[in-house]
């Protein structure tokens, strides 16, 4: 054999990302549901709860806009990844790739590219609704820096957890149902749908604090709301350091779970 070189993981990963995006865009139902659902929820909540928080001049719909960004990232990253992996295992995508020289890292890179592009589009869509419909002011540069690392940590943590959870999904048809259980439960206890979070019993807040969603929604409220709104948070503070710490920890937990549970085929144990 000649010394022809195997294409590298980064090269293959980019090619996977391109193909993942192409397939996603061509499945029109997926496009509509993934993007329209969080935006629709935001419009509904904003219309139903139209009041302002006393003395702050901040409307409930603006708070929802900030919190729903956390939901948008969670649903995009976690569901796209969890059900996508289950689907790839079922329709032969993974088996096909495993018969070629591609690495699992390149495959996961492709998924990560898909998730990042979708999450950026999702957040843009929610911000457009917030700004155009609810007159939410956009923050200054220092807040955008926080947005940057918060977005990055959130997407990575949710994606890795999605991969890990997909190991529990035996058939792709049940993926939506299985993945939505933790998702919806966490929305309700993490201050996304119900805010101020302090309305919840304190033990429930403690439970929510173990998971990333509470910290994501709190972080995005810091980014997009005036400083005076911090009194409505569980600690009465934005707790940026703790947000970074918890999300960082979930990235590590997710990565470990991924490495332990990822396998090319479902059948072999």
């Amino acid at each position: 054999m000649t010394a022809a070189v195997l294409p590298g993981t980064a090269h293959n990963g980019l090619a996977r990302g391109r193909v993942e995006l192409l397939q996603f865009i061509r499945d029109r139902t997926a496009v509509i549901f993934t993007f329209a659902f969080p935006a629709m929820l935001l419009l509904l909540f904003g219309t139903i709860f139209g009041d302002s928080y006393e003395d702050t001049g901040v409307s409930v719909s603006q708070v929802y806009t900030a919190s729903m960004i956390a939901y948008g990232i969670l649903s995009t990253a976690f569901i796209t990844m969890g059900s996508g992996l289950a689907m790839d295992r079922e329709d032969g995508t993974l088996k096909r790739l495993h018969g070629t020289p591609i690495t699992s890292t390149a495959y996961l890179m492709g998924k990560l590219i898909l998730v990042f592009v979708l999450s950026i589009a999702e957040v843009t869509m929610l911000l457009l609704v917030g700004v155009l419909v609810y007159d939410m002011p956009l923050p200054d540069a220092s807040h955008w820096v926080v947005f940057g690392w918060l977005f990055l940590l959130s997407v990575i943590a949710c994606t890795l957890c999605g991969i890990a959870v997909s190991a529990l999904v035996k058939r792709a048809r049940t993926a939506g149902a299985i993945l939505n259980v933790p998702l919806v439960a966490l929305q309700f206890i993490s201050g996304v749908f119900i805010h101020p979070i302090t309305q919840l019993p304190s033990w429930l807040i403690t439970v929510a604090s173990l998971f990333p969603v509470k910290w994501m929604s709190q972080g995005f409220r810091y980014v997009f709301l005036p400083d005076s709104m911090k009194v409505y948070e569980a600690a009465g503070q934005w707790e940026l350091g703790r947000i970074a710490l918890v999300l960082g920890a979930w990235c590590v937990i997710g990565l470990v779970l991924c490495l332990v549970t990822f396998r090319w085929t479902e059948k072999d144990r």
Binding site: T93, K95, R96
Partner: peptide
Amino acid sequence: VVLQDADDAADL
């Protein structure tokens, strides 16, 4: 490897 029953990449 020629797979026996794959139906992947349907939209490509």
